[in-house]
């Protein structure tokens, strides 16, 4: 369960970008998480409210985009997705494969609010 560290990292990155953008509040954070990265959304959510408390990110919604794992067979070149567990090429049963996608794990963007500049 390293989701606490993950929640803290998400907070640090988001606060950093929010402050630099002059935000008064962060309303949402978009995360991209590949199927092969072993992160449990619910656990991150569980820690999120706790770590974000009293920060510019307090109350921000975490939005997860899960990217499916994509493998390419190095023998017959077929590109395929896997159901839940790693599996060989469905066409030629080869184990010589390359992982094309599914290991992503990053903060894609944040949604912020700024105080409107008041005209005198």
């Amino acid at each position: 369960m390293h989701e606490l560290s993950v929640a803290e990292s998400i907070l640090n990155i988001s606060c950093d970008y929010a402050t630099r953008s002059g935000a008064s509040r962060v309303t949402a954070i978009d995360l991209v998480i590949g199927q092969l990265s072993s992160i449990v959304d619910d656990s991150v959510m569980f820690y999120w409210d706790f770590v974000a408390e009293n920060s510019i990110c307090e109350g921000a919604q975490l939005r997860f985009t899960r990217t499916p794992a994509r493998l390419q067979c190095l023998d017959c070149e077929l590109e395929y997705t896997i159901p839940d567990q790693l599996s060989p090429c469905p066409r030629c049963s080869s184990f010589h494969v390359r992982i094309v996608a599914g290991e992503e794990f990053y903060v894609d963007s944040i949604e912020i609010e700024k105080e409107e500049l008041k005209t005198p």
């Binding site: 560290s5 993950v6 990292s9 998400i10 640090n12 990155i13 988001s14 970008y17 929010a18 953008s21 935000a23 008064s24 309303t27 995360l31 794990f105 990053y106 903060v107 894609d108 963007s109 944040i110 949604e111 912020i112 609010e113 700024k114 105080e115 409107e116």
Partner: peptide
Amino acid sequence: MSAIRVPVVEKIFNAND
């Protein structure tokens, strides 16, 4: 108040790395 989207694209384990 207006909602603005700020692109980040930063790996979550960057600080550790």
